[in-house]
Design a protein around this nucleic acid. Structure first.
Length: 364
DNA sequence: ATACTACTAGCCGTTTTCCC
DNA sequence: GGGAAAACGGCTAGTAGTAT
């Protein structure tokens, strides 16, 4: 991004045109891309006009996993919207585009759609570009506006091998015989089979468990985080009130302490004479992340976070062999809180509509 | 009262891995 | 081969705390 600006600054005269191959993220991403999308040379306030953009994300012209696009800009004039975008798509059945193919061959095996791009938020010129056919852009106008609901990320229950559980048996005294899903995550965690209290065990769903209007499957998680204090439950109380659960977690202390989020958010630097000499834990080693009181709200509308198609459902409680409990959605989902059942189902139906789905696709 | 600073919850993007 | 998910690093907006 900086390189593009430096080149426009150094090598272009007013009216000069420059073309660049660049990652598609600069047009679509929030944050980092916003500075780029001001299309203004910072020191001289010289405007830059984007003439065209070609979206080659699906084409994948390079033998790499990057998102490719191409654009041209002219120095000395401001960018105006909508601007023309060509979207390249490989025809079905065409595999990877080979570097030795001729241009004719690539033309033959691909289709190009003429689209338009506008900033998705009309009041913010640097917002992500929305690219779609002209008619679809017009249709999506009614979907834009302020949103009274706040979307949140699901609970981070990591590492999976420690906090994701399988229930083998409910004992007569209501204690659970469990096994950790030790090979579910990427990190290697030893298999442990033991008995723990049922208090902190909840049914849970990940993005992959969701379908439109329902859950396909669920599993169980251990939540050792106090949603109010945003830290693990007080270690002393925990050890005396739920000794079996505590003992289960102690076995994984080494793994839990090493977690990036734990090191980042639950440690502070210990300084001596102004220089950092070490780190000190400020919360129990089983503290978790992105778990708030909303995580446990009675009615939540939950949707897949990482999939390319919208799938939403209403999540409340789920039946378990040890009684009905609040169901947790993990961080491959997003959710928002509804005040009651009716509101939740109404929101869910709207999210699952084709109109919302195609609108989301136009700018992400 | 205002300006500045430090902190972190929440979120986003990328790479790796998994699975069909 | 390709799409989806897992894992994790990193950014930023918002806020609480502190200094002026």
């Amino acid at each position: 991004m900086l390189f593009t600006y430096a080149c426009a600054d150094r090598y272009l005269e007013d009216g000069g045109i420059l073309g660049f191959v660049i990652t598609h993220e600069v047009f679509k991403s929030k944050g980092a891309g916003e500075g780029f999308r001001s299309f203004l040379l910072p020191e001289s306030d010289t405007p830059l006009k984007v003439l065209t953009m070609e979206d080659m994300v699906d084409l994948k012209p390079f033998q790499a996993a990057n998102k490719t696009s191409l654009f041209t800009l002219k120095r000395g004039e401001p960018t105006t919207y909508p601007l023309p975008v060509v979207e390249w798509k490989r025809k079905s059945g065409v595999g990877r585009v080979q570097p030795e193919w001729s241009l004719e061959e690539v033309f033959e095996k691909t289709e190009r759609a003429n689209l338009q791009a506008i900033p998705v938020n009309p009041d913010k010129k640097t917002s992500s570009w929305q690219t779609a056919r002209r008619a679809d852009l017009r249709a999506s106008e009614v979907l834009k506006g302020t949103n009274p609901y706040k979307a949140r990320l699901g609970a981070r229950v990591e590492p999976y091998g420690v906090f994701w559980l399988r229930i083998k048996e409910v004992r007569p005294d209501d204690k659970l015989v469990i096994e950790n899903l030790h090979d579910r995550g990427k990190r290697k965690v030893p298999l442990v089979s033991t008995t723990i209290e049922s208090d902190l065990v909840y049914p849970a769903v990940s993005g992959g468990d969701l379908v439109r209007f329902g859950v396909q499957s669920h599993f169980y998680v251990l939540i050792s985080q106090d949603a109010e204090t945003r830290k693990g439950y007080d270690e002393e109380d925990f050890a005396s009130n739920l000794p079996l659960t505590y003992a289960y977690l102690v076995q994984f202390k080494g793994i839990l302490v090493k977690r990036a989020a734990y090191q980042k958010y639950f440690h502070k630097d210990v300084t001596k004479n102004g220089s950092v000499i070490g780190k000190e834990a400020i919360a129990p080693f089983y503290s978790m992340y992105n778990i708030s009181e909303e995580t446990f709200s009675s009615y939540r509308v939950v949707w897949k976070r990482m999939a390319s198609k919208m799938a939403a459902m209403v999540l409340s409680t789920l039946p378990t062999p040890f009684g009905r409990k609040t169901a947790i959605s993990t961080d491959t989902t997003s959710f928002m809180v509804a005040r009651n059942r009716g509101e939740a189902h109404y929101l869910c139906a709207i999210l699952n509509s084709d109109i919302v789905d195609s609108f989301i696709r136009s700018y992400s």
